[in-house]
Design a protein around this nucleic acid. Structure first.
Lengths: 134, 134
DNA sequence: CTAGAACCTGACATTGACGTCAGAGGCAAG
DNA sequence: CTTGCCTCTGACGTCAATGTCAGGTTCTAG
């Protein structure tokens, strides 16, 4: 398939696909006229790249890890493995942080709802409201 | 306290604190000479702002939610509550996505480790390695 | 063959949360 | 008073992933 189809299948822009290639995250087979061609396999790869981006990894980091995905028996797998463990830990910490934030949001929402309840049941015990009826 | 102390206590840069004020996320009391002064309460607020930033909320979204934190009985709490629920859902989805990514990383690491095991126990069944001893 | 869609390279624009610098003023200690 | 640190405003720089535009080539349907 050509770049347009790959992009739409993976749910990214054509520009992004070219960018991934520029960053060394993706390779393409060029036709005689210079157009990029891809196989179905590349769709997975692009979505996986997107996944890693969403996880906060940079292009450089992804570049370091993808060779390990391509051929897991490479000699660099040791370093890559360490790198992956490191990113995994960072990701875990980030997830924990987000969960704490979500809990904080839940707390705020509970407070807001409680206030709203009080407004409905006893409007007059709210000093802000009771002072300005008009 | 002045801006430097607030920044260091909250673990952010002085620049960031000024930026938050510029975005309407934070207010300060100005001395006669124009210097910003804060109370201990602002430290919490800045750290909470940081938390929301880390959760992927934009300044604009935070601006919409913070009034609800300041005075939960405001009339805008209804809209804010809806907004918070919306952001909470987005956050939950993001967390789920990150967990899937972490699982994918775990899978990759397991594969890499398995390959390494095989390399250690039966070096000669790896065609790449066996072809270039020197 | 020809119109239009899809592709190419290359380069500049954008966005958001800051970094950083310049130039000027404020403030406590010696 | 002055030395040194903190603060002020304002403005430009950064970074990373993408958008977007220009000018040209290639493919495909009619």
């Amino acid at each position: 398939m050509r770049i347009g189809e790959l992009a739409s299948r993976a749910g990214v822009s054509v520009r992004s696909v070219r960018y991934y290639e520029e960053q060394g995250l993706l390779t393409s087979i060029r036709s005689a006229s210079g157009q990029r061609h891809y196989t179905d396999h590349e769709v997975e790869r692009v979505t996986f790249i997107q996944r890693l981006y969403a996880a906060g990894l940079s292009s450089r980091t992804i570049t370091e890890l993808l060779p390990c995905v391509d051929s897991p028996s490479e000699e660099n797998s040791d370093a890559a493995l360490e790198r992956m463990a490191q990113e995994r830990d960072r990701l875990s910490a980030h997830i924990a942080d987000l969960i704490r934030t979500r809990d904080a949001l839940d707390g705020l929402m509970a407070t807001a709802r409680a206030h709203r309840e009080r407004m409905h049941t006893a409007m007059d015990d709210c000093p802000v409201r009771s002072g300005s009826p008009a």
